[in-house]
Design a protein around this nucleic acid. Structure first.
Lengths: 342, 342
DNA sequence: CTGAAAGCGCTAACAT
DNA sequence: ATGTTAGCGCTTTCAG
């Protein structure tokens, strides 16, 4: 095994507690003693055994970020910020991939990881409000995204109804009249899709446009492939749409590609908008108009809240925080050739 | 705090050791006793405290996967498989983002995480062979990718020279003569780029084509943006290239977009090939021809090797494993409209 | 097949 | 400013 506190204590001729204090700085240590101890640490190459520390402290310093898919750039970008922020606060972030699987989400929620993880940031997809309420774990939980609402936990998300409305308004202003939505959920299992569809409907109503069920395409998942399939069907309609809002950027990019395959011009024949502002959409052909949530803010806030709860700090302010978002108009709706990367 | 072994022992009227044996199954336990213990466990809702277990066992069950960027889909796809495989083997995988930073890689290598992590899978970018040789940590290390060669550690990678050659051969066969490489490294700090450039040069020589330094574009990093910048400069040459091999798919996609911006047809005016086979390239316009490494195999193998070393198993076979790869020809070189998603 | 007890390395309460 | 010590929850000899 490695070098322990005891080894250092013996080498430096001091007690265990003193070494611990040099390492952790909880109590003041005399300058001369500190130097002797530090020298011993350096010579012997001591690093604290974190398992022991965790056992003693009752905390592990690990927090988990559970997302439905790592390969969705939106979550990868979120994770990158979260990892950094966690590190800054002295925590290690463990990524958990739920694969949008109900059991995986449920297990995480109910602390299958108890004693391993001090807290959980979850982006729920399948798990419902009741399950979150009935959760049998005592570690702090922060929710991100729109999967679950109105639960006694911190919750960071954008206002999805408003985001969706902003996107539709942009399409209406550019003269579109037959606007489709791609990526709705089936039944109750995808709450955020419902909210985005709601925004879509509200904005149509505001603009005096009729809602047509055949223009709302359900998809099984949230990938490019799903966007392609759904879009093919929409384009096969007698009266195909002249614009599409994707549930997210990946679906929008799939829709975009399906339009190209079908020989339709984007945006001349059909305009496309997504939600997420993933980097891919800044370099696609055409570049993708999108709703950009403040991703850094979401990730940072989620981590900070969680850590604050873990450390028992007074957390003021409302449980639910709505982070800002904005529309970024690019070629897929404006047609104006932009400069890639912006 | 939670329920401990002691609580279960008292409840079931047995000793600590017996409960431990029911939980771990190291020694046989009488059927009646087992049932009584199991009942107590279920009633009280016991989960083992892993910190204590780790302290006692001297291992944590955590392994780290250190990659230069989470937002590069290639690594995200790799990570997804690695997380799954680690879970299957009873380990938790922690992602570490080195951000292609020398210090971050070096710290990880030298066990700043000692006692936290049982083993490390590293995709080195900045750290060199000497540093890996001089590493001051005793946990097993598995290298992936082409950053470092000829060190006494397991190493999983594709043959980058051969991969690059295959790509160039494909371009030559389709009649290209002025072939550029985008994404070379500057100086010694990016080994895998050197290998890919070497393959490029070898294939040019084989085809009887002259090597021209102005057709090898150096980039600072490996993103879409870098591809765009480099490609702009190549297209501004008096004799611009009629084909480009990108260091990876992201760079190739940037190059592709820059060509479009400059009004060049892809592949009519300039063909584009990447390396990695990220999903994005299956849906871009045009879809991207690429060299596809066996990502699942790389990830799975890396995890398995690492775990085998951690558990002290006999590991047979060579230290370095070269995983297979293949060329996937898509629109960016063939021009033939493909069906998106394949 | 079961029990008693040592001790992994650390922190924190209590002494000095 | 420094030392002593109990004990976090578990695994694992050694005894029976």
């Amino acid at each position: 095994m490695g070098v322990s506190l005891k080894d250092i204590a013996e080498r430096a001729g001091v007690s265990l507690a003193t070494v611990s204090n040099v390492v952790n700085g909880y109590r003041p240590v005399g300058e001369r003693t500190r130097q002797r101890v530090q020298a011993a640490i350096d010579e012997l190459g001591y690093t604290p055994n974190l398992s022991a520390r965790h056992l003693r402290r009752g905390r592990t310093g690990l927090i988990a970020l559970a997302i439905p898919e790592l390969t969705n750039p939106y979550f990868a970008e979120l994770a990158e910020v979260a990892i950094h922020e966690a590190g800054r606060l002295g925590y290690t972030l463990v990524m958990e991939n739920t694969a949008a699987d109900h059991e995986a989400e449920s297990k995480l929620l109910n602390g299958s990881q108890r004693h391993v993880i001090d807290g959980l940031i979850l982006s729920p997809v399948r798990v419902g409000r009741e399950e979150v309420l009935a959760r049998a774990a005592d570690t702090p939980l922060v929710l991100i995204g729109e999967g679950v609402h109105d639960v006694p936990h911190d919750h960071i998300a954008i206002d999805n109804v408003a985001a969706s409305r902003l996107a539709i308004r942009h399409l209406v202003e550019s003269g579109r009249r037959r606007i489709a939505f791609v990526g709705a959920g089936r039944g109750d299992d995808r709450h955020s899709a419902h909210l985005r569809v709601r925004g879509y409907r509200e904005a149509l109503a505001e603009a005096g446009l009729a809602y047509r069920a055949e223009l709302v395409a359900v998809t099984a998942r949230f990938g490019r492939r799903d966007g392609v399939h759904a879009m093919r069907q929409l384009l096969a309609l007698d009266e195909p749409p002249d614009a599409v809002l994707g549930y997210n950027d990946l679906i929008a990019i799939g829709a975009l590609r399906a339009a190209v395959d079908a020989g339709r011009g984007v945006p001349e024949d059909v305009a496309v908008v997504g939600i997420d502002d993933i980097e891919e959409g800044r370099f696609s052909t055409p570049t993708l108009t999108t709703i950009a949530p403040a991703k850094e803010e979401i990730a940072r806030l989620a981590v900070r809240r969680l850590v604050a709860r873990i450390e028992g700090a007074e957390v003021t302010g409302p449980l639910t925080v709505q982070t800002p978002f904005r529309l970024i108009a690019r070629e897929s709706t404006t047609g104006a050739p932009g400069r890639a990367g912006t």
